[in-house]
Every structure is written in structure tokens, then in C-alpha cells.
Design a protein around this nucleic acid. Sequence first.
DNA 1: CTGTTAGCGCTTTCAC
DNA 2: GTGAAAGCGCTAACAG
Lengths: 344, 344
Amino acid sequence: MARSTIADVARLAGVSVATVSRALNGNPSVDPALAERVRAAAIELQYSASPLARSLVLGRTATIAVVVPDLGNPTFQEVLRGLSLAAKAEGYHVLVADSAEAVEEERALALDTRRRTDGVVLVAPRMPDDELAALLPELAPVVLVNRRPDAVPAVGADYGAGVTALLEHLHGLGHRSFAYLAGLERSVSNAARVAAIEAFAERSAITVHRLPGGVDFDAGAASADAVLATGATAALAFNDLVAMGLMSTLQGRGVDVPGELSVVGFDDIPFAAYTSPPLTTAAVPTLRLGELAWAAMSATLGASGAAPAALGSGAREPAADAASAHPLLVPDLVVRGSSGPARR
Amino acid sequence: MARSTIADVARLAGVSVATVSRALNGNPSVDPALAERVRAAAIELQYSASPLARSLVLGRTATIAVVVPDLGNPTFQEVLRGLSLAAKAEGYHVLVADSAEAVEEERALALDTRRRTDGVVLVAPRMPDDELAALLPELAPVVLVNRRPDAVPAVGADYGAGVTALLEHLHGLGHRSFAYLAGLERSVSNAARVAAIEAFAERSAITVHRLPGGVDFDAGAASADAVLATGATAALAFNDLVAMGLMSTLQGRGVDVPGELSVVGFDDIPFAAYTSPPLTTAAVPTLRLGELAWAAMSATLGASGAAPAALGSGAREPAADAASAHPLLVPDLVVRGSSGPARR
DNA sequence: CTGTTAGCGCTTTCAC
DNA sequence: GTGAAAGCGCTAACAG
């Protein structure tokens, strides 16, 4: 049985298609009795308007696109989840696209998905600044996650603040020599970390050994020897995965963490609390980041979603910041067992 | 500047819109010279056909929907990733919907997303069998992941086989008394595990203590005492997360794993290799599951995606199984440090 | 209040 | 080979 169209409903209800459209869209200008008849007919025919046809004429799809560099990355997964849930609460759908860290594909992917949606949120785009700047206008409305060009709405985590908090924590424990395992060079969040580290080093007379790294377990595991070679008393990993990989190899080498070397991560992924020792880290509220990204998008879209609903996100924000056009969430320092007094 | 339409291109190229359409779609019946002129005009105007209008007339959106019970679940994340990548390779887009484990929403979500796409893949739907059976016809084309009603294409992991492999491994180590930490009762994959356990118990004279559980760390952590109370020498966790939570609490209690108690998980999430001791588990090829789900969908869609491309999935399949209409991937037993000889 | 009609931007018969 | 015109299914003027 083919799907019924608005014409079928009109016929069954004995009215014109215009009336059906009006009635079903809650246009108050339609006679209550007729409206009821229409509704009944629609139900009988199991009719509901074609989103496609609707989108074409309305110029809005009730869908947004989310482009992430890697769906395998826990951070992006959470952002996507927060975004998806928040969007759903307002009757919006989410089209995901994974660029698989292929920088050269990002632009096309964004452009392509944008055309089938009402807007796009770019999560941690890897493309260079100039390219991004050139792309943004074509993408509008667009919101950025973890990337700065503040010409458009953007939400992000304050990686610098997080790193600073970690450094202060370690500094307070007597550490003066650090090893930093870098992330992807082109990653903006890596740059933010590096900047914070340098700023801290400048005012605190510490030494920091920057080591090439990566973003996963293996990168951390592979760096163990290099870290030990620096003689540092504390290692700052780009993220929790790297920290876990590092700890794992370290322990395999018989190195005591945190006795001989403190290790701290970043992100506070769910697993961080369950390593042994549990990982000291800076908790990035990634789910919240996704919600905020939606909030920003929703705002620029005019925010008249089909099913406006409360954003059941529990606690109220510290207002000022999160309400801003460019909220920058400050990660929470989470002190666990992997960090301790510097060995002497 | 407003986007240009096909009419603009037609005007600029001095032809009719029909010709533009034909030329741009590679219809061979158009004069090469004209075609070139059209293409040039299209480029000059940066024109590309509206996917929306196209979808409306063609009756296909080049998009599929994926409904998952929880975007926070590593298993579903990987399935989504595999699916998304595979779909992209054939020029298809992916609309995701997270039902947030709200069984009563699944139906509406599936129906809703289905209408904006060409098909839907239901990942581990939680709804009861009869409801699912009733829904499937309305959703077609539809493919199921980790759920059986084989009336439609389905792909899944053979949880029973995985559990059996784990049990055999432990049995070989001398274990005779087991604790099983169950997952969600309504989860079909839990039922599969339970069935395999019972079958094994029947032929091997072992005792199995079934404990209520959950699917995350906390569930595992909370079950530690109950597990110890059973006197079992080996614990079979619903999944790796549960196993990790369990191990964590166990170690906090001073229990030696695997000396006093062997612990095994399920899934082989990336973190499983990095716990201490590293977790023995059954590796479910979730990414591959996603790829197969797409393959199944692609097949029922007629598989004429916009940009047909190879499914760069590395190794060839054992053919027979994966090529079937209902591939059931057998998890690999991965023996690591968390399992050892039974204490005596 | 309700019906008629003109599109939304495209593809595709159907003639020429 | 190419164009005119009829829709895809809906909404929004515009008249009554």
C-alpha cells in the first residue's frame, strides 16, 4: 500500500488540501469542526506530511549536520551524544559525518552535509585557519566546537586552564621537571596546551621536555622510554588515552607510578577513574560541550523547533560563561592516584 | 548572494533546464559540446543541484538512519563508525538517533527518521519481539544489528559462541564455579549469553551463579562483594566495562586477580588491553559489524550509490559467513592476564 | 473561514 | 539531440 498524500486526506475529509495543511499544522484560522474531521481522516489514513516535500517548500529540514574528525575519539563521541540529545529535545535531527582525520575531505564533507541540513557544527576541524575562515561563510549557520575563529558562534573547553590546573597541582607536589607528550600537531587543542605550558614555565622556573606524541594508547606506550630519558618527575599526557598507554608501559618496565614518576592525563574519560592507579586528570565536560553547541546552533536557527522542550541538563550553569556567545568551559582538576610528591 | 538554481545555469548556458539536468547527470544523450558549455556555466555559478529537490523527485535521499539505544555505549559507537564510513564510501549519508535507552521512544524514533531517509538500521533495539515484528514492515528497508527476527536482513555477533569460548578457556584452567554478571535483562545479547552459559553448564558439570548486573563500570564495581560471596573462582562479566569495574573494586579489597579470582570481560574494547592485569575477553568485531550492516542495507537499496568505492576493509572475510544474509560474527577469544588457573 | 493556484528546485516523459 | 510541460508532496499567498 502506497503512502497516502495530503490529497487523499483532503478527499476523505471533503475539504481542500489547503485546509488539511492548515488543520494539521495547527493554524487557528480553521473551523474547529473541520479541523477535527481532517485530523480524523489523517489518522484513518495514517497520514503524516512528507518531511521532504515540507522541507523543500519551507526551506528548513529540521536537521543539522555534525562533522567530526574521528568518530572513534571518546571526546567527539560525547560531544555528538550531547548534541544529538539536545537537538532531539527540540525536534531536530542530526546528520553525522566522520572525516576520518582526512583534512582534505573536511571542506567537501561540510559543504555537502550542509546542503541537506539547516546548519552545521564543525567539531575540532583540522583544516588550517585560512581555509577554515574562507569556508565558514559558505556554511552559515555554523558553530564551532574546540576551534577559535570567533567570527561564528563557538563553544569549547579551556584547555589552557586545564593544563595550568594540572601543572599547579604537580608544582605544589614539588615537581619541577616535566615531560609533555604532545597530541596532533595540527590540533588546536594541542596548541592551547603548549601555550599554557610555556606560560607556566615562564613564571615558575620549571623545565618542560616536549615529546612528539599522538592521541592514543599506543602513542603513550611508545613514549615511555623517551619520557624516562628526560629525567622528568612528572609526565603530562596529551589526553587520558596517552596517559594510560604510558602508565601501562611504565609499569611493565617496573616503574612505580606515582612513586618514581607522576602521570596525568586530560579529558577524564570514563575509564580514567579505573586505571591503577586511578588517573589524575582535567575533566572536560564534553557532553555539556555538545549541549552548548546545540544551544548555540538553536539560537542562530531562530530556535523554533517542532517540539520545544526543556533541556533537562540538571544543574544550572555558572550563567555568565555558558550563556555567552563563546562559552569556554573550564575543565575540573580531578586528583587521583597517579600523581604524587616528586621523587628527590 | 542567493544560491543559483538550475534555471540560472540554463540561462547562462543558453539551453533549457532539461538539458542542464541531463548534462550534469551524465546523460549520454546530450551533445558533448553543449554538455561542456553547461558544465562550465555550472562551475561559474558554483551550481550544484539541491539535494532536497532532487530527493523529492527521485524518491531517494541518499541517506540512511541509524537508531541506537545509547550513543555512549562503546559497542554502538563502533558500529556507528563502521556504518558511517562504509556508507560514506558509497556516497550515502547517515542520520543518527539516540533513543537513550527509552524503549517506548524507539518506535517513534525509527518511524520518524525513516521518513527522511531511504532506510533504517536498528542497532540492538530494546523493544519486545512482537512490537519489533509489527514495526519492521513499516520500516523497510531495514536491517537489524544484534537482534534476530530474521525476516529482515540482520547482522550480529555470536555472543553465545563468545561466551562458550571464554567458558572453555576458564574450564581448561580448572575453574568449575562461576559468577555471571548479567547485563540488561531486556537486552537480547544478554539472553544469548545466558543461553550459552546454561548449555555449557549442562554438559560440563559446573555451577554458575547469576548475579544482577548492568552494563557499566559502576555495575561491576558494585557487584564485587556479591561475586566474592558466591565463592566462585572465576567471574564472567557482561562486558569489559563491567569487568573493569569489578576488577577495580576487587583490587581495592585486596583480592588478587587472577590469583584468587579470574575475571573475564566481553567485547575487547580498546581499553581492555590496558587494564592491570590486562583483561581476558572475547573480541567482538564491532566496526566490522557496522560495515556489514551497511553492506546489507546497500544491497537491499539496490546499491547504486553516488560514488561507488571499495570498502577498504583490509582483509578478506572468511566469505561464507559474512557474505550470508545474516552474518553472525564469531568473537575471538583474547587471553590476557586477568584469567589464570583456578585457586584450590 | 476555505478553496484555487502558484510555486519550492529538480527530473522526466512526451513531442519536435 | 533538445525543449515544453507535467509533476514529486507540500505550504502560502491570493481571492472569495
